[in-house]
Design a protein around this nucleic acid. Sequence first.
DNA 1: GCTAACAAACCGTCTGGTCGGTACGCTTCC
DNA 2: GGAAGCGTACCGACCAGACGGTTTGTTAGC
Lengths: 191, 191
Amino acid sequence: MAGQVRDAARTRRALLDAAARSVVLHGAGVSLDLVAREAGVSKGGLMHHFRSKDELMAALADDLFDQFARAVEDRMDADDPRPGRRLRAYVRATFDDLEKTQDAVEQATLMATLSAFPEPARRVQERYRRWNRTLAEDGVDPQRVLVVLRACDGVSIAPLFEGQLGPEELASTRTLLLELASGTGPLVGDT
Amino acid sequence: MAGQVRDAARTRRALLDAAARSVVLHGAGVSLDLVAREAGVSKGGLMHHFRSKDELMAALADDLFDQFARAVEDRMDADDPRPGRRLRAYVRATFDDLEKTQDAVEQATLMATLSAFPEPARRVQERYRRWNRTLAEDGVDPQRVLVVLRACDGVSIAPLFEGQLGPEELASTRTLLLELASGTGPLVGDT
DNA sequence: GCTAACAAACCGTCTGGTCGGTACGCTTCC
DNA sequence: GGAAGCGTACCGACCAGACGGTTTGTTAGC
């Protein structure tokens, strides 16, 4: 039922969750002690799982990316014959994430704060580049891909810079981006 | 020539510049001592100009925004009769900024890191919202405005997440966004 | 000479990281 | 099946250093 008293995997998960919450609340200034307490673990326990603060943050970054990658994969529509399926899945994942979270500011703050640490920043960059490469081979005009990706980036961090976005704004931008991600030719633009 | 030995304005400028450089290098963990040394001033001197770290960071945020606002104003084309002049100026300012800086990652890192401090984050949000309101009254279809703005946001922080963007990628996205910012009707999208 | 602009030493607090120790849980062997 | 043995998970006290901020002192400029 409640599981064992000792459960490394569970503890690790609790630590990562606690770290995420604490970072959101206290920015880069989070203390390991706080994270440990928040997870119901002693600081020694934390240090057992993550040998340094940098390592904890890196693990947190990896964790977030894994979740997002899975979200994209889940949103791939196998019945959709048109090219750009992965790009559209990416758009959906981005927006679903924002709509789901009560406070989208959290995610944005997290990513931004993590980027303030050397090792996590490196990993985020590496992962991001991989995404770009994958999405470029999706059969859509590269220019389109880039604009859509940039807009997704923008939508993701916008909460950080200007607070939570309105639902109607989110919805309208989402539709528009999905349309942009559906055409294959170059974008000429005008009405 | 070199000015006086004591020059408050000049010292303040030096401190802000040093703060910017140091924050980029050391993230939120910058020490006041380091910033002071980097500016060729003692810590006491720094504290004379900024009463706390938070205040220093807030001033830095304000400074960055002032610069950007001026850049946008400078790029307003008075001869352009079409609506959306300010939005296009915004796009130009965004891209010029990125192309000018040898290392665009700096700007992005700066903004992100600053957002990790409470007071600076507040100011950034306030300023950003003002921009949004101003740009919404520019005669362009609101949906267009939003996508363009989000894409600009994305282009700005992209360096943080995936490293410096290629010049041809920047150029092509720039053109595309300017086109998007030139139409007035709703965006239908397909080719 | 008086005030603003700095310098330099100082202090209490906090933080990341270490370390010796403890107790749980699984395996092994009888 | 249970006692022994053992590795891993975890605890909690501790430390050295750093950091933000204060205070006191000094000098330049009007």
